[in-house]
Write a protein that binds this DNA or RNA. Structure first.
Length: 772
DNA sequence: CGGTGACTAGCGTAT
DNA sequence: CTAGTCACCG
């Protein structure tokens, strides 16, 4: 839980080069082998330990290496103890990786780095130590998005606001945004408050915060915000941390939001030894409140800051790097770096047009099988999509082929319904005041406690100013609630009591198993005939596995609320499937980039909401995607995509036009034009928009790049309309893969109207029919 | 109280 | 298309 020495006065700061420092006992061998193999800039970044340092690290320039070496250097030269270094990352994955790599580079001698973690986990740790300063108990619970929204829903209802017009979800987004900007309800500008329900936004925010206090809870945003409040109001506390943290390191600085910036600035006021590492070209979290400005402004914020640029790329081939650099140069708002590599050449980046998403999945799958048959691994391969919904067609295809894959990110394990339900049980057993948990499971599985009963309980709870569970225990003594509901509630209360008694004797995992068993929760899913229930039961099993690694339930719950990703299991040879956002920081020899279509990527929503800034962020995302590839990068776009269940034609992404031609080649897709097995019906409106799409710059460029001999239908497409009609004539009998035999009734360019013997009259593209 | 069917709004990225 | 909500009925 809390760091045992977090309040011990820090040992006297050893000053580099001082007699004291030289005389300090060395726990590590005083060698500096970790410096070997660093290039001059990297070495610079590692050795500049004092003062403010900004390391501008382009993609693949050895950023993680510099960070870990820097840590190793500070530790092994005795500048600070492990507990005196604050290193912050954004993701748990990054934190884990850094911990591992520091361990490797200086040996097991480092007894952990207690203050290495994500912004949120470190802020939570600090907050637990001073919770009372913001009217919380140190046992506060951390709400997930789901709890947050349910709570807001109650608040909105109680204020008599139409929750259809003003959704709790929207309010949650607003509050998140405010917290990211460091705005507490008191500091909220009036203008902001009008973003919700005609000026009631601020009031809702305030009520919500009060409810959180009563519930002894905070949401994600609160973790840092409360830290800042504490630091501002209690200089003595801040001072403690100033004395404690001799060195501060921040990874992915371009992703910090205002709140995180304020937090860092407060902490860095101590020694001033703040080193931030980042790349403005990889800032992809603007929607989450990240301010690229933080990194662009660093030298102003910390005068005299040393700036080190890492521009030598060790990851990708010259062509991949060239394509990525060319693309990103279309952005206006950047510091500007020039990445270079000694690895000139390599394969050209490919661009391939396909018919639709399933075809895209087929094409990519067979590319993967090719790769594999040439003796390479599935592990080398990643498919990076813009939005998680794009993953579906790939998963379907992979399952059909038996191709092993893993989804990274995606719907998160701990956000699944069954896992949240199970957690609610555990939370309630640990803390009887956890009303949100109570509400969630009081009637799961169904116990006959309906909405009306729950409302009565809430009313009672509010009037007594006590927890729901307490109110329940009072209410069942009266005749306020009758019949089935009353019996069920009584039984439920007894269950809870018994489990709490059990919790003294049983290990967390045994207790959890007993609870899920005795509550009938597991049985509920066993009885459920839905296709997904089997998976849910398996998830619950996996959950037990996770719990079994903890000695106490509270320790587990703390872990869960912050560490939202499961450690990936044993490394098997699998293709990785993930969003572009999840791919940051990773690299793969072979990278597929599907869905490069206007509207999908760049995302229409991003463009609509944020205009040019949104477009630039999308472009940075494309840059991140390309720079993940070491040897080969392959881009795809589909001519058709299903949106909200209906088909829409799409045109290639403008990003394809922005790739420098010398690094790119257009590939034709065999599974697209001349693959008889995948004919599709083509509607009139589609054919029209398809032609429109084909005249877009993207298509033109694509056609120009096609150096390989055109395939049958690619040729047909380019022919003037009159020519195509000569291939088929009215009255001719034809065969269509999907609709069978038919007779041509009329022809309009490449579009044929055919009377099929079985399927009736359809309009089809002539490319999909054959003469009989 | 709970189950069923009709209807409607949402799919963008995530600690 | 899918999940979530609402009205109605047993």
């Amino acid at each position: 839980m809390s760091d045992p020495d977090s309040f011990r006065p820090a040992p006297p700061p050893p000053v580099a080069g001082s007699i004291a420092a030289q005389a300090m006992p060395r726990r590590m061998a005083p060698d500096s082998s970790y410096l070997e193999g660093l290039n001059p800039e990297q070495r610079d970044a590692v050795l500049a330990t004092e003062g403010a340092v900004l390391v501008l690290a382009g993609a693949g320039t050895g950023k993680t290496r510099v960070l870990t070496c820097r840590l190793a250097h500070i530790l092994s030269s005795g500048l600070a103890y492990p507990s005196q270094i604050l290193s912050v990352t954004f993701t748990n994955k990054a934190a884990r990786e850094m911990r591992e790599r520091v361990g490797e580079s200086i040996g097991a001698a480092v007894e952990g780095l207690p203050w290495l973690g994500t912004f949120h986990s470190i802020a939570a740790k600090i907050l637990r130590n001073h919770a009372e300063l913001v009217e919380l108990k140190s046992s506060f619970t951390i709400l997930d998005t789901d709890d947050q929204i349910r709570l807001l829903k109650q608040v909105i209802q109680s204020e008599g606001i139409d929750e259809k017009r003003w959704t709790p979800r929207f309010m949650a987004t607003l509050i998140d945004g405010w917290k990211n900007k460091g705005l507490t309800p008191e500091k909220l500008p009036t203008k902001e408050t009008f973003k919700f329900a005609e000026g009631k936004g601020g009031k809702i925010y305030e009520i919500y915060q009060n409810r959180l206090k009563v519930l002894n809870a905070c949401d994600f945003g609160d973790l840092l915000l409360h830290n800042i409040t504490i630091f501002n109001n209690h200089p003595d506390v801040l001072n403690k941390y100033h004395r404690k943290f001799r060195y501060i390191l921040v990874d992915e600085y371009q992703d910090t939001n205002v709140c995180q910036y304020l937090w860092l600035r407060l902490l860095a006021q101590g020694t001033g030894n703040l080193c931030v590492v980042g790349d403005d070209d990889q800032s992809i979290y603007g929607w989450r409140g990240a301010e690229v400005d933080n990194i662009l402004r660093f030298e102003k914020d910390f005068p005299g800051a040393k700036v080190v640029k890492l521009e030598r790329n060790y990851r990708s081939t010259g062509n991949i790097l060239g394509a990525a650099s060319g693309l990103i140069s279309a952005n206006q708002d950047r510091l500007g770096k020039t990445l270079w590599t000694e690895d000139e050449g390599g394969e050209l980046v490919t661009v391939t047009g396909v018919w639709d998403a399933p075809s895209e999945a087929r094409t990519i799958s067979s590319e993967i099988e090719n790769w594999r048959s040439r003796g390479r691994n599935y592990n080398d391969v990643a498919i990076l999509v813009r939005a998680s919904r794009q993953m579906r067609s790939f998963e379907e295809r992979f399952i059909a082929l038996g191709l092993p894959y893993r989804v990274i990110g995606g719907p998160r394990f701990f956000e699944r319904q069954e896992i949240r339900d199970a957690h609610a049980y555990l939370r309630l057993v640990v803390s009887e005041t956890d009303d949100l948990a109570f509400e969630r499971i009081v009637n799961v599985p169904k116990r006959g406690i309906g909405q009306t009963s729950v409302q009565k309980l809430q009313l009672a709870s509010r009037s007594m100013n006590k927890s729901l569970e307490f109110a329940t225990s009072e209410l069942v003594k009266t005749d306020e609630i009758r019949g089935k509901a009353r019996t069920a509630l009584k039984a439920f209360l007894l269950d809870l009591k018994r489990w709490r008694a059990d919790s003294q004797a049983l290990s967390p995992v045994d207790l959890a198993e007993r609870i899920l068993d005795e509550s009938g929760y597991t049985q509920m899913w066993r009885d459920n005939k839905d296709a997904k229930s089997q998976g849910r039961l398996e998830n619950l099993k996996e959950l037990m596995q996770a719990i079994s690694e903890f000695d106490t339930l509270p320790a587990y719950l703390e872990h869960v609320s912050l560490v939202l990703d499961m450690e990936s299991g044993p490394q098997e040879d699998e293709v990785s499937l993930m969003t572009l956002h999840a791919a940051k920081g990773l690299e793969f020899p072979l990278v597929f980039l599907p869905g490069w279509e206007e509207g999908v990527f760049p995302s229409q929503k991003s463009l609509d909401e944020n205009g040019m800034a949104g477009l630039e962020e999308e472009r940075r995302l494309a840059y991140v995607g390309l720079t993940r590839a070491r040897e080969r990068a392959k881009i795809y776009f589909a001519a058709n995509r299903q949106v909200y269940g209906s088909w829409q034609s799409s045109i290639p992404s403008r990003f394809i036009d922005e790739l420098p031609p010398q690094h790119v080649t257009a590939e034709s897709d065999t599974g697209y034009y001349d693959h008889r097995g995948y004919a599709e019906e083509v509607s009139e409106s589609f054919a029209a928009s398809f032609d429109r799409g084909r005249s877009s710059p993207g298509w033109r460029r694509y056609e120009q790049r096609k150096s390989s001999p055109p395939t049958i239908n690619a040729t047909a497409r380019r022919k003037p309309i009159q020519d195509t009609s000569s291939d088929f004539s009215v009255g001719e009998r034809i065969f269509h893969q999907k609709f069978g035999y038919g007779m041509i009734k009329s022809a309009d360019g490449s579009k044929l109207t055919v009377a099929f013997e079985k399927a009736g009259e359809k309009k089809v593209l002539e490319g999909f029919v054959e003469k009989t």
